[in-house]
Amino acid sequence: MANLKEIRNRITSVSSTMQITSAMKMVSAAKLKRAQDAITAMRPYADKLTDLLQSLSATLDADAGSKFADQRVVNKVLLVSITSNRGLAGAFNSNIIKETNRLIKEEYAGKEVSILAIGKKSNDAFNKSNRVIANRSEIYDDLTFDNVAEIAQFLMDSFTQNQSDKIVLVYNKFKNAATQEIMTEQFLPIVPMEKDEDIQLDYIFEPSKIEIVEQLIPKSLKTQLYKAIRDSFASEHGARMTAMHKATDNATELRDELKLTYNKARQASITNEILEIVGGAEALNN
């Protein structure tokens, strides 16, 4: 059995760790509330914008397609791997890295695959393979629509200039604090909605549908990327809060076990001292 000093040191160490994880849990909970409110507020707008764009596109003639809907033979693929800058969030980052590796090795095997890393964890994971063409981890320092729009413009330019034939977003979609869903979402080319002759739109268009679609597409793409990063940002804090909650519970359990072990060891030590005293007294009497 370990001596009392070693057990006391372990109890102190575990208690300190428990205080840290508990504080991190509370910080993540506060950040999660703001991040959750942000993604919840923008989802209806983003979904409605996408629905409107797809509905409009489905009513246009085939020769009125956008340059962002150019369906090509896929040789060059750009994966946008969205992780966080920090760890201690359970499997949040590793799940995205695993999914990105799966896409490289299975779905896009034999293709020229490059990566745009959003988050230091993604950049660190793929930088050694020389696949990372850009690292935009600084976006989390000031996560605004305008800053994300610059990244979206970079992706649109990459596609229109034939540097990429297909662009795919890989990120965690926020469902609740304990659940994140891994998303593999095509960014470009735009996925065309199947044309339906029965589509009826209760809108009066001014200017023409084609002009509206041409203006809506860049805005829709920027919104799509912003929503993905916002989803990932909320998922990160949810995952970290859950991980720190579990870590705090485990530390509490371990501390209680160590205290029990300490009390048993202390009791055994006192019992041995009493036995030694009694044995010494009997020896003197004899």
Rank of each mutant, 00 (worst) to 15 (best):
A2I: 07
L188I: 09
I39C: 06
K121W: 01
K121L: 14
L4Y: 04
L254G: 00
R266F: 13
A281K: 12
N263C: 08
M18L: 15
V27T: 11
D157Y: 04
E282H: 13
R255S: 12
Q153V: 05
G87S: 08
N130G: 10
A109M: 08
D37I: 06
K76A: 04
S55K: 14
I212S: 00
Q180L: 13
I199T: 11
K209L: 08
K31S: 11
L188F: 06
N127S: 14
D51Y: 09
V77H: 02
P192A: 06
N75R: 11
L4K: 04
D196L: 10
R102G: 04
K25T: 00
A125Q: 02
F187I: 03
A228P: 03
L52K: 12
I277T: 14
V132R: 06
D196G: 04
L155S: 05
G90H: 02
A62C: 00
S16G: 05
A234Y: 04
S16Q: 06
K259M: 13
E273Y: 05
K259L: 12
I139K: 08
R102K: 13
K195V: 01
L201C: 06
K121N: 09
R131V: 01
E236P: 03
L254P: 00
N123Q: 11
M183I: 11
D196K: 06
N135C: 08
I96V: 12
N286C: 08
N176S: 07
I270H: 09
K120L: 07
Q163R: 15
A109Q: 14
I277H: 11
A283H: 10
H237R: 10
K173I: 09
I270W: 07
Q36Y: 08
K264E: 14
Y226F: 15
V113A: 06
N9K: 15
E112G: 09
T21A: 02
D146Q: 13
L32N: 08
T21C: 09
A149P: 02
Q200D: 14
A35V: 07
L52C: 11
N93A: 04
R34S: 15
F233Y: 15
K227D: 08
Q71M: 09
I182R: 14
K67I: 11
Y203A: 01
N75W: 01
T179Q: 09
F187C: 00
R43A: 14
H245N: 15
T248L: 01
P218L: 00
A89I: 01
K227Q: 12
E181P: 00
L155E: 02
A134D: 11
F92K: 01
Y140D: 00
D124N: 07
L284V: 14
Q186F: 06
S66N: 11
E107C: 03
V80I: 12
A2F: 13
A177R: 12
